[in-house]
Design a protein around this nucleic acid. Structure first.
Length: 963
RNA sequence: GCCCGGGUGGCGGAAUUGGUAGACGCCACAGACUUAAAAUCUGUUGAUCCUUUGUUGGGUCGUGCCGGUUCGAUUCCGGCCCCGGGCACCA
């Protein structure tokens, strides 16, 4: 080794990348029976979400996840695992196609170029991918199997043609899946999505909803979760799948045989139904139309609703609209009451049955609708406060909220009874007096204000409580009212009343927070929200034989009573799988005039995507492929008669739904994956990628995997054992890195200026891996300094006959081995790097270290800074690369501390500390603590009341004054 | 609105069966080296008050806010506020 060789990353990095490639040290050994004999316990499959090679190129944020898997895979390899760490490209789909259209290039050529550029950019970072296993979703050898999976789905009835209206992006000119929509807009281009009826292929993902949901919480035999995934991703999937249980209940129509079925999660409120609502698209609307008195009005409403975009339609703030089907009445099966039937767009056609029973008293949306159209509101669930008490005295009472007409302030009473109560006007209802009269009378008596009732706010609520000031248990039935008054209507108040409480005016918000009893707040909360429906649980009233029962407990009983069915519904929709675009896998289907829909025989796969001159989307519901006559026109594979190919293509998410399996056996021409190899490698042990894939890629892949499991292609029920999210790297200005903001940092520039190793270790060090964080080039220099110090540390090594290794060095090293190993396993790279820095700092302080000791440090560093590590490693004369050497193992004996610092606290505050041998008895620690001068100072003249000793940690003394 | 994360110095962050808050790094400041600068090395670096001017020693406060449990709370409990994300007219 030359003595004063300077650290020059540019020189060593290229050199090592070539050497590694030449020596094939990262080539994965074959698994399974066909391969080596290593057992599945020795394998480790670590996977990145493969990139979508856009034309934009990389910024420093993109490789962060790849660096992490690289670190993990390198450690696992050194630990003797058979590591599979592959990389490939997801290149079909809208983004590439739109970009190609913009650039006026063929997407096929452009994709090849982008992939090349992407690979070059990845290569300079020194990753350990086994490129011999590279996959590309646009390669016919690959998409042959994507098409094959589609055929299997078709055979099982899980791929079907549908003519239902779907989401259509008028700008991208294609249909979209529910998952491709963000707040009513196309996720790609932001254009508001329209509903468009058209023929399309749909995958029945809803058949798997239950399993997709349940397996999120499944446990292994050892009680650990089957999916070691971030809770946020699991939660996002639960929300997306959106399971809810409820009842299907049939309503007959007055004077006809027709029935309508509604779905409700609240069959307990059935007696409170005051009208029925059908979605505008509901079939029955058309069927009933002939007998509807206001037919024209209804028709107009329905066609208007069809034209609305998703955004207009689902805007929560929008006022409710609807039209009554005049002359049509439905019959409530619970009490045979006739209720009107309405059409309104607040009912969604594609959830539940597209029809709902409206219970305005107990549903906010129905309440709003009923208020607007002046429909009756019938209370059937009574809100109850507190539990029934013995010997209750029953009272009907009112809670009168008085509002000042001028400034909207609310009148409250501050009670002088010593309990510090604050309440609105409350009082009992006299015999033969109405609630309304009582409210007005009480306000006048207690406050001296003449007030008028504006509206009742709630139905009766029940309150059970113990009136401490009177010493009796009470049961009140309370009704809240809103009244209005103005200051000049004050007529004075009796002395008796003014002794009881004083009056004050305050704002609505303030009133809600200062009222002392929550049963008196309900009215005010209703006024604040503008909605007086009660959606909580309670006791049934006005519900015939079910009166007095708890609403939660009575749900199934009422369902049975009316012959309803208890069912489970999901928000998850079937996966709209057709795209009317060029750049995707052709759907392997033939349409024959005689035979109908015919699957392409498996032996004819792949159905290759033909080269075309014009791949502009047509917007007609046909893809550009429809124009290629010699491709479209084929012989029917059944009857050999003239037929046409399906011209729709698959969505972007098709190829990525199974690619992880192909890495296990990338060249297999006969099978998607060899079962032995699949058994050996599956599942993926660690999967790293962005959280934005929570409800698309990760749901689709789980769905396909479960299907492949069902048809015996794969052996595990879930594809990805552990999932780790990578946090975005933002620009230095805290915004997303984007050309638009001019804050893009290019990895090539960073590597040129500082070296790949510096960029790698900095990205691992900058913060918790899964957290979003801003790039900081100035912070990164610390990483470069650290590498320089390690570089210099090599001079620190003693010559062969040098000094004997000290215990201190071994202790530092073995503690570091333990920490770094655990941290990498837990993907806490920032603290792993931090402990490596600490170790290097410590080693610098020591006079000299042995070669073996330095090599331990190098091995721990190797996953993070592979080039420097190998350069220094071979500098010591090692022949084989450090990356195929063994990972150090912590020797607990060497890493154990014999001395610890004991903290001493007096009355909970740390007042001193001392060094002590490990594990010495409590008594000795206590005595030593008491003898310290800085401690004596605090306990002199006091009585020691208690002593707490925590082994190897602290002594806590509790002392108090003598008196 | 519902659900899931999170809130710690000038900055990124560390510390979890409750036990010395601020590891590690950046920035900043001071010193060494240098004709000089850069680089490098050494040291200081939460706020505030007292003491010292023999240059140090010590007190109080401090992990979003308020309250509670405890000898002791960033950590546990109750109530709020703010930020990020998911879902949202899903009956």
């Amino acid at each position: 080794m030359k003595k004063e060789q300077k650290y020059a990353p540019a020189k060593i990095e290229k050199k090592w990348q070539k050497k590694w490639a030449a020596a094939k040290i990262y080539k994965t050994k074959e698994g399974g029976k066909t391969g080596n004999k290593s057992s599945p316990q020795d394998k480790y499959y670590v996977l990145d979400m493969f990139p979508y090679p856009s034309g934009e190129g990389l910024h420093v944020g993109h490789p962060k996840g790849y660096i992490a898997t690289d670190v993990v895979s390198r450690m696992k390899r050194m630990q003797g695992k058979n590591v599979l760490h592959p990389m490939g490209f997801d290149a079909f789909g809208l983004p590439a196609e739109n970009y190609a259209l913009k650039m006026k290039k063929n997407p096929m050529d452009l994709t090849a170029k982008n992939v090349k550029r992407f690979k070059d950019q990845l290569e300079i970072l020194g990753f350990d991918y086994d490129w011999s296993r590279e996959v590309n979703t646009t390669d016919p050898k690959y998409y042959k199997w994507t098409q094959w999976i589609f055929l299997q789905l078709f055979k099982k009835g899980l791929a079907y043609e549908s003519f239902e209206p779907i989401n259509w992006c008028p700008s991208c000119k294609t249909g979209l899946a529910n998952e491709d929509i963000e707040n009513g807009r196309c996720e790609r281009c932001g254009t508001p999505v329209e509903k468009k009826p058209m023929r399309q292929w749909v995958l029945k993902i809803t058949d798997y909803a239950e399993r997709l949901l349940n397996d999120l919480d499944a446990k292994n035999n050892d009680g650990k979760p089957l999916l070691d995934w971030p809770e946020s991703i699991k939660e996002a999937q639960r929300n997306w799948i959106g399971r809810s249980e409820g009842a299907l209940i049939k309503f007959r129509f007055q004077g006809r045989t027709l029935e309508v079925e509604v779905f409700t999660t609240r069959p307990d409120t059935l007696f409170g139904v005051t009208y029925l609502v059908l979605a505008p698209e509901h079939k029955l609307v058309q069927e009933l139309l002939a007998d509807v008195e206001n037919r024209k009005e209804v028709e107009e409403y329905v066609s208007k609703a069809r034209l609305e975009t998703e955004i207009e339609r689902t805007d929560v703030k929008k006022e409710k609209t609807g039209v009554e089907l005049k002359g049509i009445k439905a019959i409530n099966p619970a009490n045979n009451e006739e209720v009107p039937v309405w059409v309104a767009d607040y009912v969604l056609a594609d959830y539940g049955t597209g029809a709902v029973m409206a219970v305005p008293a107990h549903d906010e949306r129905d309440w709003e609708f009923a208020k607007k159209f002046d429909l009756p509101i019938k209370d059937v669930v009574r809100h109850v406060w507190g539990n029934k008490l013995p010997n209750e005295e029953f009272r009907k009472s009112v809670c009168a909220i008085v509002r000042n007409k001028k400034d909207g302030k609310i009148l409250l009473l501050k009670w002088k009874n010593g309990e510090k109560w604050i309440s609105p006007v409350i009082g009992g209802v006299e015999d033969r007096e109405s609630y309304e009269d009582a409210a007005v009378r009480e306000v006048l008596e207690e406050t001296g204000y003449k007030a008028k009732i504006v509206e009742p706010i709630s139905f009766e609520i029940d309150s059970h409580f113990f009136a401490t000031h009177k010493g009796i248990a009470r049961h009140r039935t309370i009704k809240h009212f809103l009244l209005e008054t103005n200051e000049d209507s004050h007529v004075g108040v009796s002395k008796k009343e003014s002794e009881k409480h004083e009056l004050f005016w305050t704002t609505l918000d303030d009133a809600i927070s200062c009222i002392t009893h929550s049963d008196n707040k309900i009215g005010l909360q209703g006024i604040k929200s503008g909605n007086y429906s009660y959606i909580g649980e309670g006791v049934l009233v006005n519900s015939g034989q079910f009166n007095g029962k708890n609403s939660e407990e009575v749900k199934k009983e009422i369902t049975d009573f009316v012959g309803g069915k208890w069912v489970t519904k999901y928000k998850l929709r079937d996966w709209v799988f057709s795209r009317q675009r060029y750049w995707g896998e052709p759907i392997p289907i033939i349409h024959c005039g005689k035979c109908g829909v015919v699957p392409v025989p498996e032996k004819d796969l792949p159905v290759k995507l033909p080269k075309v001159k014009s791949y502009e989307p047509t917007g007609t519901g046909e893809s550009p492929l429809a124009a290629i006559k010699n491709w479209v026109n084929v012989k029917c594979s059944k009857c050999k008669g003239p037929a046409k190919r399906e011209t729709n293509t698959m969505p972007q998410w098709a190829g990525s739904s199974w690619y992880y399996l192909r890495y296990e056996d990338p060249k297999n021409a006969k099978k998607l994956v060899d079962p032995n190899k699949e058994k050996y490698w599956s599942p993926v042990d660690l999967y790293v990628g962005g959280a934005e894939h929570a409800t698309r890629h990760l749901i689709y892949a789980r769905f396909w995997h479960k299907f492949l499991y069902d048809i015996g292609v794969v052996s595990a029920i879930e594809p990805f054992k552990k999932l780790q999210n990578v946090g975005l790297i933002m620009g230095e200005d805290g915004r997303k890195m984007s050309k638009r903001f001019g804050n893009v940092v290019n990895p090539d520039d960073i590597v040129n200026a500082y070296g790949a190793d510096t960029m790698r270790i900095y990205e691992m060090f900058m913060g918790p891996f899964d957290q979003q964080i801003s790039w900081s080039t100035s912070s990164m220099v610390g990483a470069r300094r650290f590498i320089e110090r390690v570089w210099k540390l090599r001079k620190h090594t003693a010559s062969e006959e040098g000094e004997a290794p000290t215990g201190r060095v071994d202790k530092i090293l073995h503690k570091t081995i333990k920490k770094v190993t655990k941290d990498i396993d837990d993907l806490k790279f920032n603290t792993a790097v931090s402990s490596l820095m600490i170790a290097a700092n410590e080693l610098e302080k020591v006079k000299s270290i042995s070669r073996e000791q330095f090599e331990i440090l190098l091995k721990l560093l190797a996953p993070f800074i592979p080039h420097v590590a190998d350069e220094l490693w071979t500098g010591f004369g090692n022949k084989r690369s450090i990356h195929v050497s063994g990972w150090p193992v912590c020797d607990e004996k060497l890493s154990a501390e014999e001395k610890v610092t004991i903290a001493v606290q007096v009355n909970g505050k740390t007042r001193g500390s001392f060094e002590a041998l490990i594990d010495i008895p409590d008594d000795e620690l206590k005595n030593k603590a008491l003898s310290l001068p800085e401690i004596k100072k605090w306990i002199d003249g006091k009585v020691l009341k208690k002593t707490i000793v925590v082994k190897n940690k602290l002594v806590s003394l509790v002392a108090s004054d003598l008196s």
